[in-house]
């Protein structure tokens, strides 16, 4: 089943951001808005384009996620590391 969230980086800090259900870009992936339809994707793509044009974010892209007991987690290890930080201290 297709489930995606929109992620980007903050222009100023470089921190990873995820587009959240409260329509802001947040540094917490757990609050990300998961979309499951192509219409939602298109709509949010336009939102992202505006945010890029407004210089709020850079490099937006869609990533695949899954829902494990109500918690969103990215399918790709790379995206999980972006969400949780380096696995080494």
């Amino acid at each position: 089943m297709f489930m995606k969230v929109l992620t980007a980086n903050c222009l100023l800090t470089g921190h990873p951001l995820w587009y959240s259900s409260d329509r802001t870009w947040k540094e917490d992936m757990k609050k990300a808005l998961a979309v499951t339809s192509s219409e939602e994707c298109s709509y949010l793509t336009r939102i992202a384009e505006k945010a890029v044009a407004n210089n709020e974010i850079i490099g937006a892209l869609w990533i695949d996620v899954r829902d494990s007991n109500g918690i969103l987690s990215a399918l790709r290890l790379r995206e999980r590391i972006r969400a949780c930080g380096p696995t080494v201290v």
Binding site: N9, T13, G14, H15, P16, I58, R78, R82, P86
Partner: peptide, 13 residues
């Protein structure tokens, strides 16, 4: 920015 050594990596610049 690259020729000033600034990369955008996974977590920050």
């Amino acid at each position: 920015r690259l020729r000033n050594g600034v990369y955008l990596q996974l977590h920050a610049y």
